[in-house]
Design a protein around this nucleic acid. Sequence first.
DNA 1: CCTAAAAATGTTAGCGCTAACATGAATAAG
DNA 2: CTTATTCATGTTAGCGCTAACATTTTTAGG
Lengths: 339, 339
Amino acid sequence: MPRKPRLRSGSGVTLHEIGLAAGVSAITVSRALNSPERVSEALRNKILETVDRLGYVPNRSARSLASARSRTILVLVPSLTNTVFIDTLVGVEEVLRVAGYQMLIGNTHYSASEELQLLRAYLEHQPDGILVTGLSQPPEFGAILEKLGIPAVYMMDLTDDGRLCVGFSQEEAGAAITAHLLARGYRRIAFMGAQLDERVLKRLEGYRATLHAAQLYDAKLEFLDPSPSSMQMGAEALERLLREHPDCDAVFCCNDDLAIGAIAQCHRLGLAVPDRVAIAGFNDLQPAAWTTPALTTVATPRNRIGAEAARLLLERIAGLVISAPRQDLGFAVVARGSS
Amino acid sequence: MPRKPRLRSGSGVTLHEIGLAAGVSAITVSRALNSPERVSEALRNKILETVDRLGYVPNRSARSLASARSRTILVLVPSLTNTVFIDTLVGVEEVLRVAGYQMLIGNTHYSASEELQLLRAYLEHQPDGILVTGLSQPPEFGAILEKLGIPAVYMMDLTDDGRLCVGFSQEEAGAAITAHLLARGYRRIAFMGAQLDERVLKRLEGYRATLHAAQLYDAKLEFLDPSPSSMQMGAEALERLLREHPDCDAVFCCNDDLAIGAIAQCHRLGLAVPDRVAIAGFNDLQPAAWTTPALTTVATPRNRIGAEAARLLLERIAGLVISAPRQDLGFAVVARGSS
DNA sequence: CCTAAAAATGTTAGCGCTAACATGAATAAG
DNA sequence: CTTATTCATGTTAGCGCTAACATTTTTAGG
């Protein structure tokens, strides 16, 4: 008695069936699709016609299993609600898509432990490579990648320790916007920081170094809150900052969300921006250009970072020698009305 | 002469090897992991201990291939830079994650042809189901799903044609915000629309119907631009609208981006909001609450839409009978200072 | 025309897993 | 104590594809 046939997935048309219809073997069909130059033109055309006619759809699982290459890249980002990382993902996607790679997105929620958990979970997909946000993962993280030989590119920041990275110097950017405020004549410059991840802390370092150098540093002007940042928090923090330090004449907010909340609060309190207090943000999100006055901020090349990181990773996967493991894409201080 | 062993993927530890180490067959290990109740407790513990010890990571490709279930859901959204869809994706992700499903994101860029192309491309992954934004896909779209038996849930809008859908009535929402403006006493209410997708057009219908009913409809007060919306466009459109129709006393912008640009432009032109002109938006994005004055808009349950749609789809995949194929999650007019 | 090399196609096996069926052990029912 | 029934585990095969090797056909060089 013949046993029940197994359930089949997808369109049901297999390489083998295309082969039968076109009068060739399955492997030739595979070659016609994946390395066309290895099949004679006449045969190739006939095969491609058959593929089209029967509506063949390759099965990626079978392909991954047979070739030990998943054509899948894991991308770990701290948040999806922060436009910064979305822009990065869009850049990544554009590059991976044309290369035939699939992007798997993991949201770490700014948590190192979740990041590790996600990595473990996503290993099921046998990713060919991984794009990570930031440089400070737990030690096991690198150990796993090392052990399994999964290449990685680190995004948004720079290091010289040999890891492949694409980004800009968070510290220098923090220093640059602080220097801008100094140049405009502000002397009591506060720092407003939330969601204190490694990038925010580096911007803070840049801020501190610059003010120290100008002998204007005052630790009391630092407002730091580890909880997630929001416009709400920016509004509340601004009010508190000016109440406790009425001589504060400028605020460098570690991101645009805080800055937008801060400007809105100034309106509510009847405080002139930038005359009473100047406000600067970070990232140059779309709304930053549309506050009143428009927000001075730091434009960051997030989209390009994603795209370049993806390109670098694909090169690494292809076995190319990477001459420059550290790619600095820079940043730009965008001076607008709020300073 | 023995042939070269094939390259292997991932951690290298297979079910079979776990079985050897634990003194059982591969299938028993598989059962211990996937349907624990079918393996005796003693054996199960021993197996799980071995799995842990050897750092076994299942291979999803092999699993998909053998079981004809990919545990993958395709999610098609029109844009990734629009927060609305990100919020939806976050809702989807939360539900899929705990169910062990993987989300594949396809960005259609608001294009029906790209949507179809993406669907075809993603069939390679043999998705077990699909979540689609909107109801108006090209006819082939439904045909493909039908033919392959892939269940779908439609998000963000409602229909009674039997398709599973989770959303709210775009038309009613457009009508409601227009009615709100009427109730506040505005009489020359303009409509500002960009990125004229099906949802925007339905909001427009709601706007038209409401003004018709009040005998206040004037086609000249409709500003429509099919190109992507932006704050920039909102600013430009507002200026033009008021120049061409100085008696216009309120503007319903089809999304918050346009509205934020419009309010900013009012500041630049020295026009009081809402005294000279009232502004209303749509979606209630975060910045909407932080303009000056704060923006009147329509809050939409995007996150819940994503989550509910995912839940519905999983039920459908599990073969459950869906009693209510149409899930209306409603909307809320949020009246703030700009009206 | 012959021979060597290259190009085009085919055969075989196996990637890691689970469906289907098979068997043996434990339990229940009479 | 026998037989029927359930429960626990195993055997076999195959999902659809491609790596490795094998064979056939074509081309090149003399």
